[in-house]
Amino acid sequence: MSLAPYGRLLRRPAVLRLVLVALVARVPNASLGVVVTLHVVGPLGKGYAQAGLVEASATKPTAPGAAADRDRIESPELDRDLS
């Protein structure tokens, strides 16, 4: 798989900046599971099973929105650059 299409895409104005902001913005969301697990197991003194239940209840409400957002962006320019 060639990475050249990604290079062309990242050279477009503001795309690199947008990608970097998106990566930084996702760090808190990605670390939420670890933080919740450590909090439930550590200070609350519960087990990993309880931590899993807490994390599952926190994740479930966000799942339907993820499927809806997947097809929202349509751009012939981006399709051309990635092909």
Rank of each mutant, 00 (worst) to 15 (best):
M1R: 11
M1N: 06
S2R: 04
S2Q: 14
L3P: 03
A4S: 10
A4N: 11
A4I: 08
P5V: 01
P5G: 04
G7E: 13
R8E: 15
R8M: 09
L9A: 06
L9H: 02
L9W: 10
L10V: 03
L10M: 15
A14S: 05
A14L: 13
R17H: 07
L18N: 03
L18P: 00
L18C: 03
V19D: 00
L20T: 09
A22H: 03
A22V: 07
A22R: 01
A22L: 10
A22K: 01
L23P: 00
L23H: 04
A25V: 14
A25D: 07
V27H: 02
P28V: 01
N29T: 05
N29W: 15
N29L: 15
A30T: 11
A30G: 03
A30V: 08
S31G: 13
S31A: 15
L32V: 08
G33M: 11
G33D: 06
V34F: 14
V34A: 08
V34M: 13
V34L: 15
V35W: 08
V35H: 03
V35Y: 06
V35N: 01
V35E: 05
V36Q: 01
V36H: 00
T37K: 02
T37S: 04
L38M: 08
L38Q: 14
H39M: 08
V40K: 01
V40E: 01
G42S: 12
G42R: 04
L44F: 07
G45I: 11
K46Q: 13
K46W: 09
K46I: 00
G47H: 04
G47A: 03
Y48K: 05
A49Y: 04
A49R: 13
G52V: 02
L53S: 10
L53A: 11
V54K: 03
E55C: 12
E55G: 08
A56R: 15
S57L: 15
S57C: 05
S57T: 09
S57V: 13
S57P: 00
A58D: 03
K60W: 10
K60E: 04
P61Q: 12
P61R: 13
T62K: 08
T62F: 15
T62N: 05
T62D: 06
T62S: 12
A63V: 11
A63H: 11
A63P: 00
P64R: 04
G65P: 03
G65S: 07
A66K: 07
A66R: 07
A67S: 06
A68H: 14
A68S: 15
D69G: 09
D69R: 13
D69F: 14
D69N: 12
R70V: 09
D71C: 06
D71Y: 02
I73Y: 10
I73M: 09
E74P: 00
S75T: 09
S75L: 02
S75D: 13
S75K: 01
P76H: 01
P76Y: 01
D79C: 00
D81L: 15
D81W: 06
D81R: 12
L82Q: 07
L82A: 12
L82C: 06
S83R: 10
S83C: 07
S83Y: 02
